[in-house]
Simulated assay, not measured.
Amino acid sequence: MGVMAGLRDRDRRLARRAIASGPGWVRQLAPAVEEAAEHTKLWWGVAGIMVAASGLRGRTAAAAGVAAMATAEVLSNCVAKRLYRRRRPPPEWVPPDDLRDRPDSSSFPSGHAAAAFGFAAAAAPVWPAAGAVCGAAALMVAAQRVHGGAHYPSDVAAGGVIGLAGAALVRAAPYLLRRYVL
């Protein structure tokens, strides 16, 4: 078996195990996390709280988080998903209640994870305490996407990397604009 085939096999086994059982806390929190993460509602809500709670620091963290989330969503959903099509985990692995909310788009990469990690990674340097809370929420979103049968672990990992790249692009934007545009 080649390296890539071995990685795909391991990814499938991890997904099947996580969907079938997974940690108890994920099963209990999954419905609320899934609902909050749909259409980036969680991150827009967090941005609103940041703006209301902490003046300039909150506004700056919220703006960075939203910009990184948007960048990550474009990179994930408009670029990566079109370059690489992947089927989602087989429906027979997924409990019937979780199947009704399963998207039809490519499984790779996870747009939810990209948005979550992008927001958290961009907000953290501006407001570390809020960034830590957002990071914990991003991990819960990532766990739920695998546990709910929407993604393989590698889809979520790739989404996380795209989110981190989105945050890095947002942090580099002022420098890049000064250097190459202005």
Rank of each mutant, 00 (worst) to 15 (best):
M1P: 12
M1Q: 10
G2Y: 01
G2E: 14
V3D: 12
A5C: 00
G6W: 09
R8Y: 08
D9G: 07
R10V: 12
L14M: 13
R17S: 10
R17Q: 11
A18R: 05
S21K: 02
G22S: 05
G22M: 01
G24V: 07
W25N: 01
V26E: 02
R27V: 02
L29R: 08
P31H: 01
A32H: 03
E38Y: 00
T40S: 12
V46P: 00
I49A: 14
M50Y: 00
M50L: 15
S54G: 14
G55H: 07
L56T: 14
R57Q: 13
G58M: 05
R59P: 01
A64N: 13
G65M: 11
V66K: 03
A67M: 13
A72C: 08
E73N: 15
S76A: 15
C78V: 09
V79Y: 02
V79G: 06
R82C: 04
L83H: 06
L83I: 12
Y84R: 14
R86F: 11
R86Y: 13
R88N: 09
P89K: 07
P89T: 12
V94K: 03
P103D: 05
P103E: 05
P103N: 01
S106Y: 07
S106V: 11
S107P: 08
F108S: 07
P109H: 06
A113E: 07
A115Q: 05
A116E: 06
F117A: 12
F119Y: 14
F119T: 10
A120Y: 03
A121N: 04
A121Y: 01
A122C: 10
A122M: 08
A124Q: 13
P125R: 09
V126A: 07
W127I: 02
W127Q: 01
A129S: 11
A130E: 07
G131M: 05
V133F: 07
V133S: 02
A136P: 01
A136V: 14
A137Q: 04
A138K: 04
L139V: 14
L139F: 14
A142G: 15
A142D: 09
A143E: 08
Q144Y: 00
R145H: 10
R145N: 10
H147P: 09
A150G: 10
H151R: 10
P153K: 11
S154E: 09
G160I: 13
V161F: 09
I162L: 15
A165I: 14
G166S: 11
A173K: 09
P174E: 04
P174D: 07
P174Q: 05
Y175H: 15
Y175P: 00
L176R: 02
V181F: 12
L182K: 02
L182W: 09
